[in-house]
Design a protein around this nucleic acid. Structure first.
Lengths: 341, 341
DNA sequence: TTGTATGCGTTATCAG
DNA sequence: CTGATAACGCATACAA
């Protein structure tokens, strides 16, 4: 028995192809009784539309835009690479991709960029940016224009975005905390560094990390977070100073991006070998550091998965079909030297 | 500029649609010069076939069979569930799935089942079974009949299988070893248990585990592996005895399946709280044990990923198109209480 | 309000 | 050897 087609349900309900199509796509101009007849036939035969054939007939193209933070960031670089790779593969079938880099730390800049998007030619947008009132408004506008919107990497929970592709930062921080606590037996202090403690990601990671440390590893004291403000020099200097002045430091938790200057400072201090360092996101720097046993563990979200998920989810939203949750749930990866992909 | 179609390349090369199709699908009966002309046009226009349209026209169905070990196994159960879930989703578009359970530990049984497969109605097979000469022969036969064959979970490296969907067991063992060593500061002994040390998976995990322990954690002594031979009772008894007679045991590495009886025995011994237990594969049992802090870490391969990958890879093999390696590489997951999916 | 005819990109069945 | 032409499952412009 073959899968039923529109022809079958046309025959079954005694109407024409066009009418079947009208009710299937909820187009106007069909009597209630006719709609009921067709729907009944659909039900009876268990019809399920062939999306690919539909897309073929309609010459469907999904125009998607990805809005990513501009400026030097190894993470964004790897994400971009993953996006380009996915774009060349089957998951990007019928998809037109545009990547826009904006100064996401400037609320006005990002809003301007979001508004500059040609919504009439777009079907969906993935946005990686910190949540601000301005961003929320811009997203509301995109939604108002009928676009599908997903938050990428950082959630925008109070906006009207349709979906979030990324991981729970609190849980990621908790995972880092659990590893840190289990890796360090002696008592001592934990240095926490980030580029900006005011970013929600850092905030949430810090929260989860601190929570686990406080409740389960009282032998470790978490020091107040050190901020680099995206300044390479500052990161090196501050970290160098703190490590020098605090001989009891046994571990370092790097929540943000500047891992290169961080490691550089730690190397110079001569204490790197005795410290347990845990960082986020697999990049060239962290990968190398894992291999060299300078970093004990990296908490990672797979950029390939992020890229493919965002594309698939946006497409599903455009078609308003169900999202395959199990496939799109991106995992909090624990990467050690031995399971480096 | 739209993507070029067969029509475009027909026009460009001055032949008919049918001829274009013949050379595209390498069908016989075309002059060399004509072939060259068409191929040139393909090259020039950068033509790439629309697989979905092709499948539509050809009413293509991919008949796949999954051969899995029968008998009680929580891992196989979760894999089956993942397979069924994937089967109901978009990744299973145009796919007909058949799951066959066989007594994989019996070389003759499995060969008989493999030979019972109706190869004329099948396009591809995924096999999860230990490698034996008989299995290799059976696979050679399947290949001879033109089927795509992937090894699932356990590789069959000396067979003629087309692809392996799963993880490197040596690396998985090394990962377990690294975690074990980092989690335990004091010196002591490590108990290693498995259902059968003769299975290649166990062998390789043990190899990787021992390697890391010996070279990096000399304070820990790995005891000779204890086998349960899939006997629940035996597992409980033997583990109970060993734990009783060896007060220096500080960690347990469970390489195989019987985690329920293992945990039961450890609980009875009253020493579970003081031991670091590391196991493989996320199941109901190990998930619960992670949550209860009875197991410190689970080395896992995502069954959903395994299922979807196997299906996608088999399809790609049937179509002889390139496999998207980055997407199909299944990762060695480290699952802790805090990053439990 | 409903039906007919045609096309999407590809394959396949016929003739020529 | 090569070329029309009709499907495949669905959407849509145009008629009725």
């Amino acid at each position: 028995m073959n899968k039923p087609t529109v022809h079958d349900i046309a025959k079954e309900s005694g109407v024409s192809l066009a009418t079947v199509d009208r009710v299937l796509n909820e187009r106007p101009g069909v009597r209630e009784v006719t709609i009921a007849k067709v729907l009944a036939a659909v039900e009876r035969l268990g019809y399920v539309r062939d999306t690919y054939a539909a897309n073929l007939a309609r010459k469907r193209q999904y125009h998607l835009a990805f809005v990513l933070p501009e400026g030097p960031s190894q993470f964004v670089d790897t994400l971009t690479a993953a996006l380009r790779e996915a774009y060349g593969s089957q998951v990007a079938d019928r998809i037109l991709l545009e990547i826009v880099y904006v100064a996401t730390h400037d609320p006005h800049q990002i809003v301007r960029s979001l508004q500059a998007l040609n919504t009439s030619e777009l079907d969906g947008v993935a946005i990686m940016a910190p949540e601000t009132p301005q961003v929320r408004d811009a997203i509301a506008r995109l939604k108002g224009d009928g676009l599908a919107v997903v938050a990428l990497v950082s959630d925008l929970p109070n906006s009207t975005r349709d979906y979030f592709v990324g991981v729970n930062s609190v849980a990621a921080g908790r995972t880092a905390g659990l590893l840190m606590g289990r890796f360090i037996a002696e008592s001592g202090e934990i240095l926490v560094v980030t580029n900006s403690i005011r970013s929600r990601d850092s905030l949430e990671r810090r929260l989860g990390f601190g929570d686990v440390m406080a409740s389960e590893f009282p032998h470790l004291t978490v020091l107040p977070s050190v901020e680099s403000f995206d300044d390479r020099r500052r990161m090196e200097d501050v970290v160098g100073q703190v490590v020098l002045s605090r001989p009891n430091i046994v571990g370092v938790y790097s929540m943000g991006s500047g891992n290169r200057p961080l490691l550089s400072a730690l190397r110079k201090s001569g204490r790197l070998g005795g410290l347990v360092v845990i960082a986020h996101e697999l990049t060239e720097t962290t990968r190398q550091a894992l291999q060299d046993d300078e970093i004990a563990a990296v908490i990672n979200q797979n950029v390939g998965h992020l890229a493919r998920s965002a594309i698939r989810v946006l497409r599903a939203l455009c078609d308003s079909v169900a999202i395959f949750e199990a496939q799109e749930r991106v995992r909090i990866e624990v990467v050690l030297r031995e399971n480096l992909p």
